[in-house]
Amino acid sequence: MASPGGDRSGPDHLGREWWWDKIAQVLLFGGGISAIVFIIAIFVFIAQQGLGYALVDLDLATYFTSPEWRPTSEPEPVFGALALIVGTASVTGLAMLVSVPFSIGAAIFIGEFATGRTREILKVLVELLAAIPSVVWGFIGLMVMSPLLMDVFDVSVGVSVLNAGLILGLMAAPIMTTIAEDALKAVPDGFREAAEAMGATRWQVIRQVVLPSAKNGLVAAVLLGVGRGFGETMAVLMASGHSINMPTSPLDQVRALTATIAAELGETARGSDHYRVLFSIGILLFLVTFIINLLADMFVRGKKTAR
């Protein structure tokens, strides 16, 4: 931690500049390690609230295989999270089906075809899309998509896997587009020029040169989109129907892991079994997003070492 000011000797050793240097150094250091401190603090908190219970008292076999989520049932509550896990997975899966083609397509257009103003306007719009609060997306799902789906598919309830998946797809698309576009931009122009010099058409350049060399970055983009979908709460709570159900069609109602925590934690007595099980769901979510982000990171690194 040798500071540039610390090396200075002479009469202004403790002068104003020296102090500013020190302050700036401490602030920057604090900012730099804050992310690590927070992530550790969050993990410790969640683990302390739920890990002991999850490992000792919770019947993990029931937890992962039973769709019966009856945390307040008398006399014996049942904590089966399968329906919730399937709910989250189905909504996220559908969201990816919707958003991957869209966002990769958008990234290719913005990165490879669009020029000048078109490109700038598109980039700003995509970033604006990412800034829409999730509760607003939920509102759109509830108020716009729901009646639409009821009309189109002639079903009695418009909130469903399909509704939540479409909304979540739209939410995840901007992030995936931005990261995918970065990945495409990271492909050196020399690759494109070399391909073009050999007579390749634009389409051949993109398909056979740019996309393969940006592959890892694109996979990372998709994985981060999956992580986003997995952790999204409010929009899914509002658009999925919030119903404990093993879905058999995209028009069925489901309930997500995140939505369950959001809906139940507020009115659960602290320290009760129900409270601890909700924290064990938090641990599950944390682990899954952690693994997804780790994979994404490994893919990005893979791209760098491959070159």
């Binding site: 769709p67 008398e74 119903s243 404990i244 159900n245 309930r255």
Partner: peptide
């Protein structure tokens, strides 16, 4: 009833 159970799959409002 006191020990009754709900049929799962209802829309659970907040």
């Amino acid at each position: 009833g006191r020990e009754g159970k709900y049929k799962l799959g209802s829309l659970d409002m907040h």
